[in-house]
Structure formats: structure tokens, C-alpha cells
Design a protein around this nucleic acid. Structure first.
Lengths: 142, 142
DNA sequence: ATAGCTGCAAATGCTTTGCAAGGCC
DNA sequence: GGCCTTGCAAAGCATTTGCAGCTAT
């Protein structure tokens, strides 16, 4: 497996997020964004980083994931109590969650339609709509 | 909002769930179902029970909430990492979540419509669809 | 009587934090 | 150099578990 041309300027990406392009952040950004859409937990990213020779501490993984989320590079989502996933796809879309395997898969935003929304209290405004379609008896590998 | 008078036979309710109608479970069932739809955390229910003179231990609150959930009397939902809410309304409906106050409100199922769902892998079947509409700048007190 | 429950406290699992050493501009 | 970052270990939370004693049937 060799890398495709590095079309993404990770240093630039990190800098635009208002952060210093340190070795750790660049390494994590590469893991997250180099190969397209991903849904990872902090733990996953951490062990992955260890396996790649660049040991990034778990605390730094958490810090970085949150900084990237705040900067709009990631979207955090909760499927089960006590476990956060971070999605590299920040466009409007929803999720299919395989309860058996724990796999999370994107559902294009236009495959699900929201009809009439209830009236909101004065001054209220929708910040986001999370739709999670929970599936059982499927291993996610059709 | 349908039970001003104690029209519910809690002992019967608990027994039907396959559980012994102990003082603790009856007490919790009363707190949950006597005054209609509620969205509570284990912690809330626990401190509420303490305030009513019947101290039910936190472990028992958790056990009971899970047993009720398994029995179909409650629906568990996760809005934020590390915090589960239990909803006494188990019919098809979705949620409005006020990020500022942490309040959770029901949205009738027919106010939100799901359009085309993506194709599911063979053997897979939808167990539930959770829709959470996150709202900011609203205090939830319309 | 006995299988099931409860309460306590300890344990767990994920996440956050405090702080000294190190790295980027 | 100065300030931002990192890493480690300890702390924090919500939740779960082990187990001795209690209770509904």
C-alpha cells in the first residue's frame, strides 16, 4: 500500500483551525483525513497511532479530537452511553448504526427527509438534527 | 398527563414485567409513571426518591431502570456522552433537546417524517430510529 | 424455604485535568 | 524566549458488579 499523492496540506489544515501544526496533530490529521470518511473513537485512533510508530498519548488524542471538532473539522456523535465517535464527514447526513458490530455508516442527508418540525420556543434555533437508525441482525458487510 | 388519580396498578405493572413488586420498584414505578411523561436520569430519580423518604440506593435505581427498559416500560436514550435518559413514553416519537438547559421534550412521531431509507444489508432489520433535534438559545419554557 | 432483591462499597471504563518538560514561531 | 503543547499519572463521572443480608411468594 503506498500513499496516493498527498493532496491535502495537513499543516495548512491544522493552522486554519487556529492550531500549531505539531507532529502529533499532523499525524492524527493524516490518520483521520487521508483516506476519506471515518468514524473513530479516541481509543481507536490512539492504538492506531501507536501501531504506526508515532506514539501519541491518549490525552493528546482527546485534546486534538475536541480541538478539531470545535474547529469544524470533525463532528462528534454519541450512539451509546459512554462512548463518543468522531466523524470526519461534517456535511449534512445521518447514521446507520449496527448494534451487533458497533459499526457506524453514513446515510446521505437526502435519503432521509424531515417533514414538519414542531414549533420551537421563542429565540430557539436548531443547531443540529441527529438521526441514528439502529439496526440489528446485520453485520454491516452485506 | 393522563393520571391525576392513581388509576395504575403498579404492583400489576411490575409483575407483568416479570419482576417482584418490591417496595423499591413500586416506589420507582410510581415516580416514573404516576404523573405522565418524564425524561429522567438515574441520578435524578435517585435524589428524588431520597427526597420522598424512601431511600432507594443508586445501584437499585440503575437496576430497576434497566429492568423496566428491558420489559418495554421505558426507553433509554443518550443525548450526551456519559449520560443516559430514560423516557416513560415508549410510543413512536422523537426528541427535542435543549442544549442550554439539558431539557428533553417529546416530539410526536407524526411531526417528523422519514423519507427514503437506505437499503439495509441482508438480514438486517431496523430496531429503532432515534431522532434528536438539538436546539440552542432556547430555555425550553416556551 | 428459597430464589430473587437490595444496598453498600469497590471496581470499571471513558474522559478530563494538573503540571513539568518539550517544541513551534 | 515565550507561549502553546505534550505526556504522564492522577482525578472525575456515570455506571456496573460482587457479595452478604433481606424479602416476596
Amino acid at each position: 500500500m503506498h500513499n496516493a499523492v498527498e493532496a491535502i496540506d495537513f499543516a495548512e489544515l491544522v493552522r486554519k483551525a487556529g492550531l500549531r501544526p505539531t507532529r502529533q496533530r499532523l499525524s492524527l490529521a493524516r490518520q483521520l483525513f487521508l483516506n476519506g470518511d471515518r468514524h473513530v473513537t479516541a481509543e481507536q485512533l490512539h492504538s492506531e497511532s501507536l501501531g504506526q510508530g508515532f506514539g501519541v498519548s491518549l490525552a493528546t488524542v482527546y485534546n486534538t479530537l475536541h480541538q478539531f471538532t470545535t474547529a469544524g473539522l470533525l463532528r462528534e456523535l454519541v450512539v451509546d452511553a459512554g462512548r463518543s465517535y468522531f466523524d470526519t464527514n461534517v456535511s449534512a447526513h445521518h447514521h446507520l448504526y449496527f448494534e451487533d458490530s458497533g459499526e457506524l455508516r453514513d446515510v446521505p442527508g437526502d435519503n432521509v427527509t424531515i417533514g414538519d418540525l414542531p414549533a420551537l420556543p421563542d429565540g430557539a434555533e436548531i443547531s443540529r438534527v441527529d438521526i441514528i437508525i439502529r439496526v440489528k441482525n446485520g453485520d454491516g458487510t452485506s
